[in-house]
Design a protein around this nucleic acid. Structure first.
Lengths: 144, 144
DNA sequence: TCCCAAATAGGATTAAATCTTATACAGAAA
DNA sequence: TTTCTGTATAAGATTTAATCCTATTTGGGA
């Protein structure tokens, strides 16, 4: 997904976020790649063209985006937070061989489990780990 | 769930784990409370009766249990690992008001999503956040 | 132009997890 | 029993994501 700076600007404004330069660049970074980067990924990528960009700004901006519901925080590996501009409910699968992160749709039955009836759910995290079909096929081919 | 040290001993041996004293106590701690403790919780609770217990041992032991499939690692809050003796597939819900962690069953449709056909899934993590029905009721009652 | 509140910078701090090295232990062999 | 060997544990240093604190900068309104 490649989005123009102007589109992002309008999108931020529409969500009551002042479109400062760091915010524009951080959102552009998130929107332009499907890699679910960490805060550190974002910082080290953007600091090249914005030498004064601080990590605090990255974290502040991401928190702001999350509060405004235009970014969500996801957990895939235990101990590092990742960020995703896709705020719809979907799960993530990380292949332990190729490290690629796949997204998958959630069954509506999961989204509101019967046993959580009358609970109000604000945040849904679903992430699986294993080996993707491509790496499984590759492993099989290597055996021949 | 209260389990005798002897039962735990047998259980560890059955899973090819030498039942050392730290291992017995760590497993007992996990089995006897439903709180999904962190490694630090376990350490600071047990260090009272085992003053030389080190964090390394706690982490090593938990890793061993996980590799042996008698404990699973779960993520509920972003940045701290928690541990659970219930290794069946189930989700966790954390109430942001009372902080209680509820467990809920997963719909079979989620366990093997169609879009991950031919993927091998080793680990399933599902955790939700929100407000539980009890805290919602309480809030409602407070308004009267 | 000046002022004020919000945004950002920069570095210190915290804390979970890992790593390193040394010591203790338990079982096997003599 | 004694010795040997590999495993388990201890203790503390190190790493690193995330937060916190304080100072500076920025931009819009008076």
């Amino acid at each position: 997904m490649s989005v123009s700076i102007n589109e992002i600007k309008n999108y931020l404004v529409k969500n009551n976020i002042k479109p400062s330069f760091p915010r524009l660049k951080i959102f552009e970074y998130l929107a332009s790649r499907p890699t679910h980067p960490t805060a550190d990924d974002i910082h080290s990528a953007l600091v090249k063209e914005m030498p004064t960009l601080s990590k605090t700004t990255v974290y502040n901006t991401l928190d702001l985006f999350i509060r405004s519901n235009i970014v969500r925080s996801i957990t895939i590996d235990g101990n590092e937070q990742r960020f995703d501009v896709d705020v719809t409910n979907h799960g993530h699968f990380k292949c332990q061989v190729c490290q690629i992160i796949y997204e998958f749709d959630l069954d509506p039955a999961l989204i509101n489990p019967g046993s959580l009836k009358n609970f109000r759910i604000f945040e849904r995290n679903v992430f699986f780990k294993g080996i993707c079909s491509y790496c499984l096929d590759k492993a099989k081919a290597d055996f021949k």
